[in-house]
Amino acid sequence: MKLIAILVILFAVYATLLVPFTQHLQTKPFLEKVGYVPEPLVVKMLAFDQRHAVAAGLIFRVLIYYGTLVEKKRITTTPPDDSSMRAILSVTSRLDPYNMDTYYFAQSLVWDEVKVRETIKLLEYGMRFRDWDFYLPFFAGFNYAFFLKDYKAAATHYTTAARLTGSDLFSRLASRYMYESGQTELAIGYLDAMIKSSRNEAIKKSFETRRSALLEVRRIEMARDRYREQFGRLPALLGELFDQGLLTRPVIDPYGGVFYIESDGTVRSTSKFAGRTENND
């Protein structure tokens, strides 16, 4: 009887402990959750003949982490641990260089110049193995043109994508990139294609958020162009577009930033289209 009472008490203590314990585990930083991932060579040796499964497992953990942030809409307040996620993707690409999930997810994280160079490197590494896959040159071509304005490199990759698909769509895209026109529109088109082909809800949502942001940029750009036509100069402030009635609805950055117009007319946001920290608010 005494033992049963002790057991009941222990179960009660355990049940009380479960909630804070689970919360503690949920709020653990990404690196603590996933743990330190050693150099690819070491992981490769430790994985023995299971390196494909280990790579799939690591990608899965990164996806769960990223997916939780996106699903719970915590991405605007808690920036994802981008460098750790990229370090793991770098390891998975070495463990299983054929695994498309690595490249697809790495590409979905790109939205600034710093990350784009790393991602291009990863994609070009993957192209050595997945030589049948048009997605990798398609991604690399887009990154070169849109972020780095390197139209020559973009055209080379789009030519490869055109050769692999047998479609002239990529050749046409390459030639459009050469003219450096309609960048935002092209990015929206790229995101539309990505959303259509995306199976993972978290990734899909992140693309949709990015597209919403770009649609707002496009709206401001169109108003800016009309302003330039009317007044023969660029607006100094975004407010001028509202004052002249060229913008009616408020422009909202889904990343929580504030839009502004640079002196050369480029539309930017203070969020840089990345999750902002609470300190930045």
């Binding site: 999930d101 697809y104 199976r199």
Partner: peptide, 10 residues
């Protein structure tokens, strides 16, 4: 089905 782009491969 947890895979992004390669369900059968997984």
């Amino acid at each position: 089905t947890f895979s992004l782009r390669q369900v059968v491969q997984l």
